[in-house]
Design a protein around this nucleic acid. Structure first.
Lengths: 174, 174
DNA sequence: AATATATGAATGAACG
DNA sequence: CGTTCATTCATATATT
């Protein structure tokens, strides 16, 4: 995409003090600019949406209504939801260490994570447990390799997020 | 930002077959396009970063949009949608076995289902998990009797929700 | 189209 | 530790 964006050119056939462009050139220019405009708009829109999502999933226990009575169900979140920065740190630590972190290690990690949001040692412990367990399950289906793989919608990982914009602009007026 | 992006203009003083622009106009055009280019680059970069973050936590099974050329479409099924025949089979198996299918069972079921459409073992696993969880939830909202002497049809309240963690270490986000 | 519901998938926490 | 449960998120489908 970046490459495409960059493939923009301007006519430079100068003559004296004035630059002359054919209508075809101008039309090309208009179209290119229109593409730019469209892409920018869509990127801005996409960014807005993603920002909202990121923010909505990040509102931790902003307020804890201490429910004095016990009859009302707690509408507050009761499950730790690590922030993105916390996940990054955990990922990094997990990659670095090939084993279950001991008590002290967990304390350290918890301390570091707590600078990016509320977290307890239990949370960290569980996270590593789950991480390991699920990494292992991903490997179990390996011992089998028949002729080939069926069609599938299985746990394949592609580090891409979908783009939902289309670069097309069918307008003539600029 | 959007407003700013849109404030772009092109000289339209046509003369015959050629369009004449002064150097000042061309310079302005260059600058404007440069702004567009910069903004687009930055937005693309930002989008990349956010996509990576989003993908790092949970890598969806999407295939690459492969935006080649000038058009790219997001068209991709990102979620397994079982066919009716598959659902029938799953329902039948679920009714027959009131328990969690073990690994081998899942393989068998998957094998059978794959004759009616693409499916993975993970899909089957999830299906049973969800099925059970939602069947249980349908019964959870047991209307609490306000009065008393509720005829306990079954002492099924063994699964008491004791605990409920305490998200200690709740410090203020700064 | 906009909203509501159903449901596949992800994941923190608990259990044995 | 491996497995299972419970909750939540995101999207496909249905409804208006």
């Amino acid at each position: 995409l970046s490459n495409y964006l960059m493939r923009m050119s301007l006519p430079l056939n100068t003559s004296n003090h004035q630059i002359v462009m054919t209508e075809a050139q101008l039309e090309t220019l208009r179209r290119q600019i229109c593409v730019y405009s469209t892409i920018c708009s869509q990127l801005v829109e996409m960014h807005k949406i993603m920002s909202q999502q990121a923010a909505s999933s990040r509102d931790h226990l902003l307020f804890d209504p201490v429910m004095g009575g016990q009859t009302f169900r707690p509408s507050a979140r009761q499950r730790w939801t690590p922030s993105q920065s916390q996940i990054d740190i955990l990922d990094r630590v997990y990659e670095a260490s090939n084993g279950n972190p001991n008590k002290q290690k967990i304390k350290d990690i918890t301390a570091e994570l707590s600078q990016h949001g509320p977290v307890s040692e239990t949370n960290v412990y569980n996270w590593f447990q789950n991480r390991k367990a699920r990494a292992k399950r991903k490997q179990q289906p390996l011992p089998r390799k028949e002729g080939d793989s069926e069609v599938d919608t299985d746990g394949e990982s592609s580090k891409e997020k979908k783009l939902r914009l289309e670069t097309e602009s069918k307008r003539e007026e600029v």
